[in-house]
Design a protein around this nucleic acid. Structure first.
Lengths: 229, 229
DNA sequence: TTTAAAACATGATAATTGTCAGTTACTACC
DNA sequence: GGTAGTAACTGACAATTATCATGTTTTAAA
């Protein structure tokens, strides 16, 4: 496993690319590489974070418990993303939990390095700002989808999203395999309702399944469904 | 009306407080004061913004149209807030429309001034970052509320929020008067459903109404209702 | 390999919310 | 002061979604 950030291609995909050589060296010297197993938590809602996580490999879900005890998944992270910035910047407890959906490889970067750099390198701040601006826009979209679309539309949209962002294998099944429970927590519905909807999609030939695995068969029709015909 | 930013107290409440004297002077020299009448738009979803708005007086709603044509209100702005930063920072079209809920007084600040300052003053960037971090957290909360709470719970929460953030008059009516339509677009429900729920709350003595005006009678009970008892 | 636990699935039913159709009340403008 | 137009409201009904109960399959561990 590559241990020097200077040689790590992942950083090209996130705000760390704005760092100078010196700054990058500091990050590399202080960072800690970690392996997180599927199902393990990176951090939990309400915790104080001492740094951020840079995702080298694997996918995690960012979720939050509602007062009724149900989990709501707010976002899935991609390879190359930095997690926990919001909390470190606002010097606040995390408002979300992060859980590995498959085996992950992440680098933990202590907050001191991050905040020092934020105070001195405006290009880095700007990069972080751009990333956060993007997250905020996506969050707004999720709000609108949640409140204006039906569960069916949201599920159709989720399938299209998962194919676009995580791809599929040679047999046309989504590379990112989620449990039915996770699907329910993404679209914000009862697990039973969600399973029924998956059955319905399958019956209509929009998707195919093989155990947990789900394949997108009719992407255009799913997209139309998501948009409300 | 005060015309020099140097003397404007409003800026203490937003990221502009991180500006140096020189920077502040530049802002003051380039800014344009505007009055926006109730119901008028500050900007519209999909537009390219040439700057940001600093709210001196009045309240606006940030909303987005869903594909089915319904409006979803994502956020109400407070006095002192800066609007349009996300779009200017990301050099992106606005994803939201801003409409005045009552008569407003705002200052328009051209984007060049903002982006120059972002590139040179890390404290300003950090302030903007903190503000955006706060918005992002709130957006996450809204997502969870939208997907996990009932319309009744969301409405109860909205009433408590409006009282806390905008206060009430001497007779116990909310200072911020919204149309039933706006309420529906905040909680994400059909207008008829929302009106029915207002009637129900009134019948139960949780709120009182007088035309459009709404007064909070049983704040604790509303809060409990919002939390799911 | 058996067995317990978890995940997946389906049916029946109830609760929530939306839609359509219509009435009443308020507001603004000639 | 009449009238057009919009907002507020109500009823009846339909669609969507949650809940509870129960059975089946898959997974993982003893």
């Amino acid at each position: 496993m590559e241990t020097r950030c200077e040689n790590c291609i992942i950083r090209q995909f996130n705000s760390l690319r704005a760092l100078s050589k010196d700054e990058l060296k500091k990050v590399a010297d202080s960072k800690i590489s970690k392996k997180i197993n599927k199902g393990e938590a990176l951090f939990i809602e309400g915790q104080k974070l001492d740094g951020v996580f840079c995702v080298r490999e694997g996918v995690s879900k960012l979720s939050k418990l509602s007062s009724n005890g149900k989990e709501q998944i707010v976002k899935l992270t991609n390879r190359g993303e930095i997690m926990g910035q919001r909390s470190v910047i606002a010097e606040d407890f995390t408002n979300l939990s992060a859980t590995a959906i498959n085996d992950m490889e992440v680098c933990f970067i202590p907050k001191e390095v991050i905040s020092n750099t934020l105070n001195t390198n405006p290009y880095f701040s700007l990069e972080v700002l751009r990333h956060m601006a993007h997250d905020l826009k996506e969050a707004d979209d999720v709000i609108v989808n949640m409140s204006q679309k039906t569960v069916k539309q949201r599920l159709a949209e989720a399938f299209v999203y998962l194919k676009k962002n995580y791809g599929e294998d040679e047999n046309g099944f989504l590379l990112l395999t989620l449990s039915r429970d996770d699907y329910a927590n993404i679209v914000g519905a009862a697990t039973e309702s969600l399973i029924r909807m998956i059955s319905e999609f399958k019956k209509k030939g929009l998707i195919k399944t093989e155990g947990k695995k789900i394949g997108i068969v009719e992407e255009e029709m799913l997209q139309e469904l998501a948009d409300g015909f």
